[in-house]
Amino acid sequence: MTNKEVLIGIIIGLIASAVGVILSLLFFGTGESISDSLSIAIAQSVFTKLVSIGALLNLGAFFLFVNTDKELRAKGVLIATIIVALITIIIRFT
């Protein structure tokens, strides 16, 4: 049961990060659509900054799980945040 709860937390954390990236593209993007904004962000080398802003939604999910005594799911969200951070570092320095 514990691995299932951690996996649920990881999935929720990755989904929250993806939604956060989409929201940050909608708010800060300069293109006419999300795909245009994504292309512009990649071309201007600001995509990693948008991913970092998008990962802020994980903070809300983490505290929601901690306050509802679902520590294993919170652990999964933390793992997802670390995964997103590592991917961001890899993208940034390659």
Rank of each mutant, 00 (worst) to 15 (best):
K70E: 15
F63W: 13
L78I: 01
L38N: 00
A55R: 07
G9H: 04
I90E: 14
F93D: 10
S37D: 10
N67P: 01
V19M: 14
A85I: 11
L59E: 01
A61L: 13
I22N: 10
G9M: 03
I91M: 14
V66A: 11
L25E: 08
G54Q: 08
A41F: 03
I10M: 08
V77R: 02
G31W: 03
V46I: 14
Q44Y: 10
T88K: 12
I82L: 00
G76M: 04
I34Y: 08
L38G: 09
M1F: 10
K4M: 14
S37V: 03
I89S: 10
G76W: 05
I89R: 04
L64V: 05
K49G: 13
F27V: 15
G13H: 05
A80K: 11
F47G: 10
G9I: 00
I40V: 05
G20K: 06
S33M: 08
F47I: 06
A18K: 11
D36C: 06
F47K: 04
K75A: 13
S37K: 03
T2S: 15
K49A: 08
S24T: 09
F28E: 07
G29E: 06
G54T: 07
F62G: 02
F28H: 09
V46N: 04
R73S: 13
V84E: 01
F62V: 12
L86P: 10
E71K: 15
K4I: 15
G13T: 04
G60F: 11
I34L: 12
I12G: 04
I40G: 06
R92D: 15
F27L: 15
K49Y: 11
V19W: 03
S52V: 01
S37W: 05
K4E: 13
I83M: 00
S37E: 07
G20I: 03
L86H: 07
I10Q: 03
G20E: 03
K49S: 13
L25I: 02
T68H: 01
F62A: 13
F93N: 12
S45N: 00
D36P: 01
M1T: 11
T94M: 13
I15W: 03
L26I: 07
G13N: 06
S17K: 01
T30H: 00
R73L: 15
I40C: 10
M1W: 01
L14H: 00
V6L: 11
A41Q: 02
V21P: 04
S39M: 00
I87M: 13
V84T: 14
T68Q: 01
F28K: 11
L14G: 05
I87F: 13
G76A: 06
G20V: 10
I11E: 08
A61N: 13
V21A: 11
K75H: 05
D69F: 06
G54K: 04
K75E: 02
F28A: 09
S39D: 12
E32M: 09
T48P: 15
A43L: 06
A18Q: 00
A85T: 01
I15G: 02
